[in-house]
Design a protein around this nucleic acid. Structure first.
Lengths: 156, 156
DNA sequence: CTTGCAGACAGAATATTATTCAGAAATACC
DNA sequence: GGTATTTCTGAATAATATTCTGTCTGCAAG
């Protein structure tokens, strides 16, 4: 299960993380390798699920998704967090992230909607209907200063 | 500043959001358009900053980033959240997100590190040295059930 | 030692794609 | 209705992706 990555793999990941649409030819030039060799490595990284996918970052405001909120969700059975609750949360498209967290609250979710009234609708119509949710505590984001899913690639 | 997107743009965004490396030719085939027309639209979406970038999703565990945490940060000057504090937070590579939030706490940040000791090191060496930070409240993620930065593309 | 095997790579050949451009079609704007 | 602007198609060309063959290397079993 534990995948071994050498320095070349990390170089590839670093560049592809910053720009998923870099051409294989450019990548090969930067690494001073043949395109075929680089392609072979990328394919293997995909197979090994080191690379999980390629996504386009869209400006949320341009598609009318101006509201971002984090919601802490407490289960009705104290510290018992059933995975079915997590699945129900994850099934909501507006819910971008579902994290099972340490402490009294069971889950922390990240939600993106058009505006605050849409959020309230979602909480009323979707969240309240999920069993075992005792309470929610919502944190509204006023302004996002930084948002990147880029990880720190280790150096060898 | 407000960008107008028609249905074709949204179709492009939906497909590229799910797979940033889809070829322009495939995209054109799916939309029954000429590749040149599709390319023109994608270029414009980039120029208009609707498309902010393309990123590769890497399995964090495969590069030894097993710990995820959210930290609430309270400013020492009560509700006054200076933007310099936000900039200092954003400058830390392990800090993936910095959100200015409503309420008593100023900022909510998302941090990814190798393990808990690395997180504590980071909090001691980096966070504590930022001026105007009064207190921090850390929430450790035990398990991430869902994590996608994909937005809900509206339908016209 | 050497034989054999497996992984990683280069280089070439071919299939596919990206990109550009001219002009046609559609749209919006007086 | 006419004109300007945008958006599109189709073809040509440049560049790229992908496949394949063979080489080289490290490594391990005999």
């Amino acid at each position: 299960m534990d995948v071994v990555l050498d320095n070349t793999d990390l170089q590839i990941l670093e560049r592809m993380q910053a720009n998923a649409r870099i051409s294989n030819a450019d990548l090969a030039r930067e690494l001073n390798m043949a395109p075929s060799a680089v392609l072979e490595r990328v394919k293997k990284l995909e197979q090994k699920k080191v690379i999980q996918g390629y996504s386009t970052q869209i400006n949320p405001a341009s598609i009318q998704q101006k509201l971002l909120a984090f919601i802490f969700i407490r289960s009705s059975e104290g510290f018992t967090c059933s995975s079915s609750t997590a699945q129900a949360l994850a099934a909501i498209p507006e819910v971008q992230e579902v994290h099972h967290i340490a402490g009294e609250d069971c889950y922390l979710i990240k939600v993106r909607t058009a505006d605050s009234s849409t959020l309230m609708q979602l909480m009323r119509n979707q969240l309240q209907k999920i069993p075992n949710i005792a309470s929610t505590k919502t944190t509204i984001v006023l302004e996002t200063v930084k948002e990147q899913q880029q990880l720190v690639i280790p150096k060898i």
